[in-house]
């Protein structure tokens, strides 16, 4: 952990507060075990994180980190899950349409849009959305329904939850619709050349049916791999730019803030959480493989 060795971060002095006497800082250093060698400190922290689960923050005294992460997780999950639904359906629509109308205006238009989606920095797009929905056009019918920034829990009212998240969902999904749509189109176009699709077409199946039943199915395999990777990483905290711009106190923002504050216990907890989700999504992806890929199922 590189953060152990960073200067300007004597946690004892920060805990002691401004204008603290040297004796106080010393006492706190002893109290919190900052005078012990680093590996020992690390071991103590891991024990507190996993065994006793009462690891507390260095910055906010008495603030337990595990409940913090637990509280931030649903926010990130809500954000990423909604965005994922959008980008899966969005990109399938884009990919399929573009592949079906290959080399027509529709294809070209969609691909340009997808490329623009890929090219926009997500935080800038978010600010743009905020500007439009919160300020410039907030008083018009178009955006008057948009609530203030921040997260509202699902169980406090699903409709409010939905309204606060719609714009963040679209913002986060734009990039992925672009990437996935492009990949899917390329895969579909290629699948069209494959023997089994040709056979299906020769049998007289309608092009739409061929597309959906056969070509799409094969093209979904790399799609699912990508999705697993991205979803895991996003849930693990990579959605932080979206969270920062929209004032959502999710895991990404928590991690970012912990890193800025050099709040070691919090960083540990969030990194552990992130690894957990990366592993879990990888496992889920493996299961989905079995479902969609006949070759895997066969064995």
């Amino acid at each position: 952990m590189i953060f152990f060795a960073t200067p300007g971060s004597d946690p004892a002095a920060r805990i002691a507060g401004r204008n603290a006497a040297q004796e106080t800082v010393q006492a706190i250093r002893k109290d919190f075990g900052f005078d012990k060698p680093l590996p020992v400190q690390y071991a103590i922290m891991m024990k507190k994180l996993f065994v006793t689960r009462d690891l507390t923050s260095f910055v906010n005294r008495g603030l337990e980190v595990v409940p913090q992460v637990m509280r931030a997780a649903p926010i990130t999950l809500s954000l990423v899950f909604g965005a994922a639904v959008l980008w899966v359906f969005g990109s399938i629509a884009v990919g399929v349409l573009a592949a079906m109308y290959r080399d027509t205006v529709i294809d070209k238009g969609l691909m340009i849009l997808a490329l623009i989606g890929v090219s926009m920095p997500v935080f800038w797009l978010g600010e743009l959305m905020n500007l439009v929905s919160q300020s410039r056009f907030h008083d018009t019918w178009l955006f008057s329904w948009v609530p203030g920034l921040g997260y509202k829990p699902f169980f406090d009212g699903p409709w409010m939850w939905f309204k606060t998240l719609v714009i963040p969902w679209f913002t986060l999904a734009a990039l992925y619709i672009g990437i996935y749509g492009r990949v899917l189109r390329a895969n579909l176009v290629e699948a069209y050349q494959e023997d089994y699709v040709r056979t299906a077409r020769a049998k007289g199946l309608s092009p739409g049916r061929v597309m959906l039943r056969h070509a799409l199915r094969m093209s979904m395999i790399p799609f699912v791999t990508m999705f697993g990777l991205d979803f895991g990483v996003l849930v693990g905290g990579a959605a932080l730019l979206t969270e920062v711009v929209f004032g959502l106190n999710g895991v990404g923002r928590l991690t970012y803030q912990a890193m800025l504050n050099l709040d070691l216990p919090m960083i540990l907890a969030t990194v552990m959480y992130a690894s957990f989700f990366v592993v879990v999504t990888n496992a889920i992806v493996d299961i989905i493989y079995v479902v969609i890929d006949p070759r895997v199922r066969g064995h």
Partner: peptide
Amino acid sequence: WAFPVYLLAISLSIVLLSQ
């Protein structure tokens, strides 16, 4: 590969910027 790129970049930046 498994670690979010941005988080990696951020942690590197924060540590390196302060020295």
